[in-house]
Amino acid sequence: MAAEEVTLSSHIQHHLTNAKMCSTDAGLAFNKACADSGFWTWHVDTLAWSIGLGLLFLWIFRSAAKKSTTGVPGKFQCFIEMIVEFVGDNVRDTYHGKSALIAPLALTIFVWVFLMNLMDLIPVDFLPAFAGFVGETAFGMDSHDVYMKIVPTTDINMTAALALGVFFLMIGYSIKMKGIGGFIAELTLHPFSTKNKIGMIFLIPFNLLLETIALVAKPFSLALRLFGNLYAGELIFILIGAVGLMQLPLHFIWAAFHILVIVLQAFVFMMLTIVYLSMASSDNH
């Protein structure tokens, strides 16, 4: 830690700040220099950890896929197939239709989000302190200026990106299954409908408003649910980390509880994705 005084709030603040990168007129700039770079700021830690974990997921599953046999599977293959079957069963139960995308999408979301959430169980100070140490010794930075947020799902950008991807797919599936006309009709002719033509036109604005809110609420709820749960959990880990020796039992209890949250949130995100896409591709409104 830096020589200047570290208050509890600055400690927490430090933990909740991403490592930023942006390009300025003077070339690449980092962290505090990016305070007013606006949209074109990159959260390097979120990107690195999430992409690293995503690659880890793909590597594990790809190596299982390469070695997969139809004969007697090994323990590793059994484990991987257990996850694949779990996701596959959920998709089959919820999404009635043929799609080569939904199942791998659900698998990617489930495992990727789970791995990212799992980072929450690493004691909050380990990796940031290590990063601070590396920054101080290798780059001569003040360790308090080195930021490292290791749980990508506590970054709204991460969860919003996932939700946005699902949102695009929802619209895409709607248009693919019902046509553009069908999609527009769905947005404008429900939930209020009448046989009267003039009445129908009169009702369009209300329907459009309600349906648009309903549609947009889905990605918002997806993104904010995951972000909120993980952010809150992370915050509590940070607070527990600040209470001295008492943190040991507290951390254990919260971590044990958090194991549930981690899996559950990954599962919920996956399940809702399947449900939303299933709703988007079915006609019964």
Binding site: N18, G38, F39, W40, T41, W42, H43, T46, L47, S50, P152, D155, I156, N157, M158, A160, A161, L162, L164
Partner: peptide
């Protein structure tokens, strides 16, 4: 929200 969103 920032460019991280696009990257992700």
């Amino acid at each position: 929200l920032n460019a991280t969103l696009l990257g992700e």
